[in-house]
Design a protein around this nucleic acid. Sequence first.
DNA 1: CCGTATCCTTAGCGATACTG
DNA 2: CAGTATCGCTAAGGATACGG
Lengths: 133, 133
Amino acid sequence: MSPSHIHVPTDCRTVTEILSRVGDKWSVQVVVQLGEGPKRFNELRRLVTGISQRMLTLTLRGLERDGLVTRTVYPTIPPRVDYQLTDLGCSLLKTVRALGDWAIQNRDEILAARRRFDEAGVSDFERERSDAA
Amino acid sequence: MSPSHIHVPTDCRTVTEILSRVGDKWSVQVVVQLGEGPKRFNELRRLVTGISQRMLTLTLRGLERDGLVTRTVYPTIPPRVDYQLTDLGCSLLKTVRALGDWAIQNRDEILAARRRFDEAGVSDFERERSDAA
DNA sequence: CCGTATCCTTAGCGATACTG
DNA sequence: CAGTATCGCTAAGGATACGG
């Protein structure tokens, strides 16, 4: 029995590792698309704009490995493969959407902060430069 | 006036960009530590195990740029710099914790799925190999 | 104490070409 | 259609050394 009330390093590692999946370039977008219902490979490829065939494959494999999507092969000709969110995948989608909502709600504030920071940085630079002038 | 009810690509980009901050290797850990209260540079360095000085600097700069933390310099000798979560940073922390809780709650299921997937992959391999034998 | 600058290694990703 | 294989680039990150 593992003591779940104390904060073991192992937990941090695992959490970080799982978080990094959310942070990678494509996983979230794929999961969001699959949230609309099962999709075929090339269907996803069209929906997730900009993704390469290679990265779609790798992303789907990763999600499948973690038990977030299922992969169903219909041995027809031409072949047809359906990807679909598992219950686990659905629950992740919900949590991730919360983060997405946060991002949308605070997007303006963040962008404003960035502009302020960048301008301040520039003017610090400019100060030195104009001291010389 | 931007139509906020339709799903413009720009929004996706911004959301993805902000999500990538959560996914990067150190930001979340730093934010979590700062959730305990203001911290000094080397204090954070000790708390966030494994982070290099360089990456702590870069991470803090990024967070500061996005308006998630404030940086306060006390021009004493030796110098002292305090980092502290802004309101925006606190609200991010809350949302991120939800994701962290999800990760903890589903960690066993994910790890189990991974083992299954990996073993299945191996046995597919093994099938070919033992066919030859 | 709090950084910055430099070098170097790896991991992520895209482009392209090929296969069942 | 749904992939795999290979190559090459670039961005992220670690180690180390130096500076205010």
